[in-house]
Computed example of a mutant assay.
Amino acid sequence: MRHLQTAVHPDVERLSQYTVLQRKATRAIVIDGEDILMLYTERYHDYTLPGGGLDDGEDVLAGLVRELEEETGAKNIHSIKPYGIYEEFRPWYKNDFDVMHMISYCYTCKIDRELGNTKFEDYEIRNGMEPRWINIHQAIAHNEKTILESPKKGMSIERETYLLRLIAQEML
């Protein structure tokens, strides 16, 4: 799979001085015309691609399907194709490691437009997460505005906005 980007958070200087946790995740790119399936999170006021961390020993494609079904209620997931890998190094918020090295395996796929029931985790419910079909250009503009203006933005918004721009450029 092609390498898309390596991003290093400004608070992470020389990696050799840190203990690093590696985390693998999947991200689903689901396009219908100029609409893209996203997760809106009220807490961070942002749009993110559906996906998340892989369980220990979990196959990447199985994790992609699981996350997409849980977070969006997606049905009839098919035509899964590799898109690229986005990796990032950012501060870790727990005491066991200093830095998280997140490797996101991004895939395009098709699903039925109508979504079923979600199976959000408690923290996703508390964060006000919900799946939405949105015009990709509106999602980009929304995230760019959040980056510039919102004190509550999360650390993933730069990754998500980079990916949205690239998807718009390459797939539309």
Rank of each mutant, 00 (worst) to 15 (best):
E170N: 14
C109S: 14
F120I: 00
A141F: 02
E144F: 08
L68N: 05
L163M: 12
I85K: 13
I147P: 04
R14N: 15
N95C: 02
G53P: 04
R159D: 14
D98F: 06
I140F: 04
G154R: 07
V30F: 02
S79I: 12
Y40D: 03
L148D: 11
D46I: 03
P151E: 15
T118Y: 03
I29W: 10
M129H: 01
D98L: 06
P50E: 10
N76K: 13
E70D: 14
P91S: 04
T26K: 03
E34N: 15
R66F: 04
L115W: 07
A28E: 07
G73S: 14
G51M: 11
V20W: 02
E42S: 08
N117S: 08
K153F: 03
E121R: 12
A74P: 04
R66I: 01
K81D: 13
E88R: 08
G33L: 13
Y105G: 11
L37C: 13
I80G: 14
I167Q: 08
T48Q: 14
M171V: 08
L15R: 10
F97D: 01
K152P: 00
L21A: 11
R159W: 01
R23F: 02
L163A: 01
V12T: 05
E124F: 01
Q5I: 12
K24L: 12
Y86N: 09
Q5N: 11
T41L: 09
G51Q: 11
E158W: 11
C106D: 12
F120K: 01
L21R: 14
A139M: 14
P10L: 01
Y93L: 10
R126E: 13
A141P: 01
G63V: 09
L68M: 05
A62I: 08
A62L: 11
E130L: 12
V20Y: 06
A139D: 07
I157W: 00
M155T: 09
D35S: 09
C106Y: 14
G57L: 01
E170S: 10
V65I: 15
E144P: 06
L37T: 08
Y162V: 02
F120W: 10
T118D: 03
K75H: 07
D55G: 02
T108I: 08
E70V: 00
Q138V: 12
G33A: 10
N135V: 11
D11M: 07
E58L: 05
G53F: 06
K81P: 05
